[in-house]
């Protein structure tokens, strides 16, 4: 069975439309969405309506959560003070234009989705705000996959797609309890994988093209897809809607705004 996994659409309807066409051409049978449907982009309502109309299983992203709960991501989630101020502007705008039923839908989204040995999350199994960067310590990365009780963990949030294979994961545990001798046990984890779907609407790979992944459950093959689309339409809409023009400039260059903690292990404590 061929799955398509999309993430981080951020109100970019043009990009979503192009990706859905590509998924159709690739003949994927099931689509999963890893959240962040809204924020920064000019069409949050249209994006949510499209996802709902296609009945795409979706988990909640950090932006979706903030629109429901109020902006409360901790400040250390932002890479800079400038990014934080711009994030607040985007939040305020989105919060103002979002339809009540869209907000309700975002509130209803689960944190995690599952299909057999596959787990789907926005950031990590711990939090929508945690980044599983490709450079994350191998032990910590393995812990996240094991915590999800999955063989393949699909995530987004970083806006850069990647496939990470965690092979030969050997864990040694030494236990010494009062009054008892020391015991040592070793566990060997089977191959685990982390698949980051990148971003449909706000890529961070230096080009404006949308990204997503295909996964074949029979062959376990992962394919990272990069889809060109008419990003200039989105840029024009950003300006028309009164969002900061710098959002359009950065979108054109594949420089997204999403929050990105410097410490990959950081978990937002709000």
């Amino acid at each position: 069975m061929k799955l398509a996994v999309i993430s981080c659409i951020h109100g970019n309807y043009e990009a979503l439309d192009a990706v859905l066409c590509d998924i159709d051409n690739q003949k994927a049978e099931q689509i999963y969405c890893l959240g962040d449907l809204v924020g920064y982009g000019p069409y949050p309502n249209a994006v949510v309506e499209m996802i709902r109309s296609l009945d795409i299983p979706t988990c909640q992203g950090c932006w979706d959560e903030d629109i429901v709960e109020g902006l409360n991501a901790c400040e250390c989630s932002y890479p800079s003070q400038l990014a934080e101020k711009r994030g607040h502007l985007a939040h305020e705008w989105t919060n103002r234009v979002i339809h009540p039923e869209v907000r309700e839908y975002l509130a209803s989204l689960p944190m995690t989705l599952r299909q057999d040995n596959l787990c789907f999350v926005h950031g990590s199994p711990n939090s929508q705000h945690e980044y599983l960067l490709p450079t994350m310590d191998g032990f910590a990365a393995l812990e996240r996959v094991l915590a999800a009780e999955a063989d393949v963990l699909f995530c987004g949030h970083t806006h850069v797609p990647y496939l990470r294979e965690l092979e030969n994961g050997t864990l040694s545990v030494r236990v010494q309890q009062p009054g008892q001798g020391e015991t040592q046990r070793q566990f060997t984890a089977p191959l685990k994988r982390i698949v980051n779907a990148g971003s449909v609407g706000e890529p961070r790979h230096g080009r404006p093209n949308a990204t997503y992944v295909l996964y074949d459950t029979d062959t376990t093959q992962v394919t990272l897809r990069e889809v060109p689309y008419d990003y200039k339409k989105t840029c024009a809409a950003i300006l028309e809607q009164g969002l900061p023009p710098i959002f359009a400039w950065r979108l054109e260059r594949g420089m997204e705004f999403a929050e990105r903690a410097e410490d990959a292990g950081h978990v937002c404590e709000r």
Binding site: S80, Q81, L82, A83, I246, W249, R250, R253
Partner: peptide
């Protein structure tokens, strides 16, 4: 200046934003 903000603004100004 907040150093990462300064880096971003210099990149944007020199890049033609």
């Amino acid at each position: 200046f907040d150093p990462p903000s300064l880096e971003a603004l210099l990149l944007e100004v020199s890049g033609g934003a």
